[in-house]
Amino acid sequence: MATARAATLLAGFILSALLLMPVQWLGLKFGFSYARLLPNRYHRFLCLLIGIKVVKRGKPYEKGACLVAANHTSWLDIPIVASLTPCSFVAKSEVAGWPFFGTLAKLQRTVFVERERRTRTAHSRNEIHARIAAGDRLVLFPEGTSSDGNRVLSFKSALMSVAQLTIVNGEEDREDDLVVQPVSVAYTGLYGMPMGRYHRPFFAWYGDMELFPHLWEAFKTGPIEVTVEYHRPVTIREIGNRKALAAYCEACCRRGVAEALIGRWEEPERAGEPRARAEPRVAGA
């Protein structure tokens, strides 16, 4: 049954992607408005197909330009986060050359950066800033790699320097600070039961794991539940500097993942973060 499930899901994933690729390409080429929303709708469908129940906590910042800083566990982070709100991602330049997945990333207007070349940091920062200033919501994974899902790695601060740049508000003739919102993603359930350390590596893609074999195992093992928490958005003016901003986002994600994995959610007084009611939501609903 597990093999049949994986084969069905893989076929559905590939077929649906192939059908929508030319539609999205045309939308981007001719500037059709649906091109920004189609990936969001597709990722909702994909989560529903795979059997990912997304439990959302908190609310995404929607009052202006925003950079999202999230922890990174798996390739599944992409459809999970993108199913909740229209967005694009910041990824390492190597992803652009990946077969199939590289094309999907380009069609979602991913910003590709060379993380290993410090001399390119300013160029990458300016590209990210230009995209956000144009109205895009970008998701950055500051760990620079993915983890095993049981912990959050240290956040790198280099690309956080984009928050030092302001966004021109043409409607009100002023410059606004760029808002950064930490978002934690935790893989918490399997078949309606808590997911333990043994099963999490089936979904966490890290180290030297091959992508397609990992994809097959994940499809065989689901369905799963994932908790996504939107933490208090801040600006670099509030925090002080980019390193402090990275530390703040890291602390929020560490706390969010830890609380989700043990099934506990602290009250708002902790760290001054506003909390909203949990909103259980099945992506695609």
Rank of each mutant, 00 (worst) to 15 (best):
M1I: 05
M1W: 10
A2V: 01
T3Q: 12
R5E: 05
A7D: 04
T8D: 01
L9V: 09
L9F: 02
G12E: 02
L18N: 03
L18A: 15
L18P: 09
M21P: 03
Q24G: 05
Q24F: 00
W25N: 04
L26E: 01
G27H: 08
G27F: 09
K29G: 04
K29L: 15
F30R: 14
G31Y: 03
R36G: 10
L37A: 13
P39H: 03
R41N: 11
H43L: 06
F45S: 06
F45R: 02
L46Y: 12
C47Y: 04
L49R: 07
L49M: 15
G51D: 10
K53H: 10
R57D: 13
G58E: 03
E62Q: 15
C66I: 07
A69I: 05
S74A: 08
W75H: 12
W75Y: 15
W75T: 07
I80Y: 04
A82W: 01
S83V: 08
K92L: 00
E94L: 01
E94F: 03
P99G: 09
F100K: 05
T103L: 13
A105D: 07
K106T: 03
R109F: 00
T110C: 11
T110M: 02
F112N: 03
F112V: 02
R117A: 09
R118P: 01
T119F: 06
N126K: 15
E127Y: 00
I128N: 09
I128T: 13
H129T: 02
A134H: 03
R137W: 02
R137G: 01
L138G: 08
F141R: 05
P142E: 10
E143M: 04
S147M: 01
R151C: 07
V152L: 04
V152D: 00
L153C: 02
F155S: 11
F155H: 06
S157R: 14
L165M: 12
V168G: 00
G170L: 05
R174S: 11
S184R: 03
Y187N: 13
T188I: 07
G192P: 10
M193E: 15
M195I: 11
R197L: 02
Y198S: 12
R200F: 01
R200K: 15
F202E: 03
G207I: 00
D208P: 00
E210G: 03
E210D: 09
F212N: 00
H214I: 04
L215M: 11
E217Q: 15
A218G: 06
F219I: 00
G222C: 05
G222D: 02
V226P: 03
V226D: 09
T227H: 11
T227Q: 12
T227P: 04
Y230I: 07
H231L: 04
V234F: 05
V234D: 06
E238N: 08
I239N: 06
I239H: 07
G240I: 04
R242Y: 05
L245W: 10
L245G: 09
A251R: 13
C253W: 01
R254Q: 14
R254P: 07
R255L: 10
V257Y: 00
A258N: 14
W265E: 13
E267F: 02
P268A: 14
R270E: 13
A271Q: 13
G272W: 06
A276N: 10
A276S: 14
A278Q: 12
A278W: 01
E279I: 11
V282N: 10
A283E: 12
A283I: 05
